[in-house]
């Protein structure tokens, strides 16, 4: 047995205080990822702080923004009437994720923090993996490369971020509100994740003991449309090989404020600022976008086993743009 303490708390300050003195502790929300990692020996916390009673389950919309409590379940968010109406992209991305059972259990905050699906990270712990055991080496880079990232990688880690929802949120310029010991800060989700350079085991800038308490999404112009397109090996319950969230504002017959984020290709949801700029003002019929699409991931460094992700990403963005713009 690997014994661990379990504690259920109802106040954020209490949770943060316990975590402060339990350096090898973990917060437990839906547990859909953490518990499987514990069973496989990838995570070995000595203290589980169950935060499910914390008051972060709200889903609220005002004139400026949508605020989602970090403990709201994926299915709560996807099914919320105001989300379906105002942010159908979020519902789309959530419904493309996992299974109904997992979506009922998994929390929104936990979804953003789920660990990579790189098979070596989730392998038996004797297998070298820098993300699991920094310094042990990367087995994936010279191994089964199919699901790895193609951009934002480093020599120490090529793992891809698995979340669907995070891709949509990054396209929507969402922020996360974080609470730690005596501090609160708000960070753009785009800046929340970090590339695996010096600390491949740290997926995010979250400080030890810091909690995600809320996700904030700016209001959208009523003429905004979006689409989430996901390519995977089977029709449901599998992670994206490549996905794309596209958001744009229809302006006459042109697209404006184009925002594109890719999933499955990088250690984080990967925005395409240059492509977004190139598409600005192009026609909703998508004539003349071919050149811009060709530049997608032009700076990628794919491995032989995942080279297909580059052309697939271009195709996925193309399809998502078509569906968002109503040109398909």
């Amino acid at each position: 047995m690997r014994p661990f303490h379990y504690e259920r708390v109802s106040e954020p300050v209490k949770a943060i205080a316990i975590r402060a003195v339990a350096p090898n502790g973990r917060y437990l929300a839906g547990g859909t990822d953490l518990l499987t990692l514990m069973k496989d020996g990838v995570e070995c916390p000595d203290h589980l702080i169950d935060i499910n009673d914390l008051p972060f389950r709200h889903i609220e919309l005002d004139s400026d923004e949508l605020r989602i409590g970090a403990l709201a379940r994926l299915s709560d968010v996807a099914d919320a009437e105001l989300v379906r109406r105002e942010y159908p992209l979020l519902t789309q991305s959530i419904e493309a994720a996992a299974s109904a059972q997992v979506r009922n259990a998994a929390s929104i905050g936990g979804n953003l923090l789920q660990r990579t699906r790189c098979p070596y990270f989730r392998s038996e712990t004797v297998v070298p993996c820098n993300k699991r055991t920094p310094g042990s080496g990367c087995s994936a880079i010279r191994g089964d490369q199919r699901t790895l990232a193609v951009v934002g990688t480093s020599a120490v880690c090529s793992a891809a971020h698995p979340s669907d929802l995070a891709v949509a949120l990054v396209a929507l310029d969402a922020h996360v509100r974080l609470e730690g010991a005596g501090s609160t800060r708000t960070v753009a989700l785009r800046q929340f994740y970090q590339t695996p350079d010096t600390a491949p085991d740290q997926d995010t800038i979250l400080r030890p003991g810091e909690l995600i308490v809320e996700i904030v999404v700016p209001r959208l112009d009523p003429r905004t449309v979006g689409h989430y397109a996901k390519v995977r090996d089977r029709a449901s319950f599998s992670f994206a090989l490549v996905s794309a969230a596209v958001v744009l504002r229809r302006d006459g017959d042109q697209m404006r404020n184009v925002r594109i984020a890719l999933g499955g290709v990088a250690p984080m949801p990967w925005r395409l600022p240059a492509v977004e700029r190139a598409l600005e003002g192009t026609g909703l019929d998508l004539r003349g976008v071919a050149g811009a699409l060709e530049t997608i991931l032009a700076d990628a460094r794919p491995l032989p086993g995942n080279q297909f992700k580059v052309s697939l990403a271009r195709a996925v963005v193309h399809r998502a743009l078509q569906l968002a713009a109503g040109a398909a």
């Binding site: 699906r117 989730r122 392998s123 087995s139 319950f237 599998s238």
Partner: peptide
């Protein structure tokens, strides 16, 4: 069932790395 021949072992000894059809398929 993908095998890593450098390690001499299966890569994903689970049901998320090795897919089988689900109802939607």
């Amino acid at each position: 069932s993908t095998m890593d021949h450098a390690l001499g072992r299966y890569v994903s000894k689970n049901l998320t790395g090795g897919l089988v059809p689900v109802s939607a398929d």
